[in-house]
Design a protein around this nucleic acid. Structure first.
Lengths: 209, 209
DNA sequence: CGTGTCGGAGAACGGATGTTTACTGAATGG
DNA sequence: CCATTCAGTAAACATCCGTTCTCCGACACG
């Protein structure tokens, strides 16, 4: 294994992570543009000035949260694209994976949905760039499927972007229902998502007319 | 014409509207949860305490902005649903209407997109309720088309919700591009939206299999 | 082992915040 | 015409904010 470097750096990264966690927790009930620096440090239990050892300002922390949030989403995308069987099973698995991800990472999902159109330009741009990368990744996955043989690259990307948008919207909708402890609404949204994916899938089959 | 009541009430509504306008303007570069009461009154040129004559607090002003914003969106929905000719012209007109609406009401569009998943619960709920009403209205419009004859009411509503979501996302995307004065990106997004609508339309035609 | 590095503490700053209070003066309506 | 209503004013309140400064003490390393 690699040489363990620095009790110093280890502690620094620990508090840095604590700041990120506290920020994410506080963002459950407000937007990034109203998140206070002192608020974050207070929750971690460090002096306000310590914040500057890790981030230039709050938007900077926001950008770091984008990387953290969408980094873990990468796993989800790959899991969905790796599915082998037919269209129907694929859709079921996709929605199931999204449901599970939302259940396990509610704060990250909420953060992305909230700040995607939020009040901090730098964070908006970071999210948009990352989602564009996801769309490209999905497009590459779709390309490999025989169904896309007659498609132009532009159209494949268009479809991929629709999938990504639909994924974010679905995740956010499930989260909203989960916040109200409304399991019935959760299932209803999941079923709706499945049918919407089926509809898109149908359109995809008949695209080349 | 009706009896003109109250120079008193007229002036009151005038400042109330001024507060709403100022709030909407300030929300171009921040979220509602960080909008300051004093900030709003300062821009209007009125004492901070005067705010309380019109709204209980900032979230209250937020829900008033929801009514104002989505009230004007009603017109767009009806304009789209009233289209008579074939599917292709319908799609073109739909996107054109959305483009025009975004160009004429950028602040309202941004507000809805931003606060739909924003940090203020009351506003989120108000937007969700209003969008649900839109979806119901769209569903009623779709029901009347012969294509939907074999559809269940649930499926029609599912489709309507997809249209509404797609509409909001498209409007927001066009707005983002317009903010960067990127006319090319605007056109690209509009074209993408048209193709996505075509894909959905295709799926719709083959749903009953 | 001794010296330099550096993450964090603590205090202080000027300024902005939401809310309440007592008030003014013009429109209102009997 | 006169008493009342009420939108808006002005000042004061306690708090909170982001940022800067100096200082400390534990780790790093030659």
């Amino acid at each position: 294994m690699s040489h363990t470097i620095g009790v110093r750096q280890a502690q620094k990264q620990k508090t840095r992570q604590a700041l990120l966690d506290a920020g994410l927790r506080l963002l459950a009930e407000q937007s990034l543009s109203s998140l206070g620096l002192r608020e974050v440090t207070r929750m971690v239990g460090v002096a306000p000035a310590a914040f500057y050892r890790h981030f230039r300002d709050i938007p900077d922390l926001g950008v770091a949260l984008v990387e953290e949030s969408l980094g873990s989403l990468h796993v989800v995308i790959r899991a969905i694209l790796a599915e082998q069987p037919g269209a129907e099973e694929r859709i079921d698995r996709t929605v199931a994976v999204v449901e599970q991800y939302v259940r396990e990472n509610p704060a990250h999902v909420r953060f992305i949905a909230r700040e995607r159109h939020g009040g901090v330009r730098a964070v908006r741009k970071a999210i948009a760039a990352e989602l564009a990368r996801f769309a490209a990744e999905v497009a590459a996955g779709l390309r490999e499927q025989p169904v896309s043989d007659a498609w132009s690259d532009d159209d494949v990307l268009m479809l991929a972007e629709m999938y990504v948008d639909h994924l974010v919207m679905t995740a956010s909708a499930i989260l909203d229902a989960a916040d109200d402890d409304d399991a019935v609404a959760c299932d209803r949204i999941a079923e709706r998502a499945r049918r919407q994916l089926r509809l898109i899938s149908l359109g995809r089959l008949h695209w080349t007319d």
